[in-house]
Design a binder for these strands. Structure first.
Length: 147
DNA sequence: GCCAACGTTGGC
DNA sequence: GCCAACGTTGGC
C-alpha cells in the first residue's frame, strides 16, 4: 500500500496504531481492498513521492473493507457526489501497524534485487496505490531489511 | 517542475 | 462503444 509520507506516513500509523485506508479513488485499488485483502494479511507500507521512495515497514489488515464515509462528506477532500449511503462507491480496509524498518528499502534497491524483477511495483507505468505482492516477493523484501 | 503513463469523463 | 480531452500519479 502506497502513501505519500507528507499526507500519511509510517510514523503516523505507528502513532495511531490503526487507521482506515480511506481516500482511495481508483476502482482497481478499491477492488483489491474489497476482494483480495483479508484480516490478518500482511501489507508492505510504501512511501511514494518521497526522498527516497521505498518500502518503510509492515502493517496488517485488521478489518475487512467497509464503505468509505469520506466519500459522503461534501467537506472532505475525498468527497464523491456519485457515492451514496445506499449505494457506496468506495470502500476501505483498516490496517494495524506492525513494524517500521530500521532503514528504508528504496525503490533503487528493489530494482537491484533480481528476485523482484516481476514485482508489479517495478513494472513500467504502474501507478496503482494498492498492489498485489507474492509470498516470495514479500520474503525477499524482508530479507533485504535484515542486511 | 517536468513529463510519461495511465485512468476517467463525457460528447457523439 | 469510441476516443479526445482532461486529471492524476509519481519518478526523476
Amino acid at each position: 500500500m502506497k502513501s505519500e509520507p507528507s499526507s500519511y506516513s509510517i510514523e503516523d500509523l505507528q502513532d495511531e496504531q490503526k487507521t482506515r485506508w480511506d481516500g482511495v479513488r481508483n476502482f482497481q485499488a478499491r477492488n483489491f481492498m474489497m476482494n483480495e485483502m483479508n484480516v490478518g494479511d500482511e501489507v508492505l507500507f510504501y512511501h511514494s513521492n518521497a526522498k527516497p521512495s521505498g518500502v518503510v515497514g509492515i502493517a496488517e489488515v485488521s478489518a475487512e473493507a467497509i464503505p468509505d464515509v469520506t466519500a459522503l462528506n461534501p467537506r472532505s477532500e475525498y468527497f464523491d457526489p456519485k457515492s451514496t449511503r445506499e449505494n457506496p462507491r468506495w470502500y476501505c480496509v483498516e490496517v494495524q501497524f506492525k513494524k517500521k524498518f530500521p532503514h528504508i528499502i528504496s525503490l533503487q534497491d528493489l530494482r537491484k534485487n533480481k528476485s523482484l524483477q516481476g514485482m508489479v511495483l517495478l513494472q513500467r507505468g504502474t501507478r496503482l496505490s494498492i498492489q498485489p505482492v507474492t509470498a516470495s516477493e514479500f520474503t525477499a523484501i524482508l530479507k533485504m531489511n535484515q542486511i
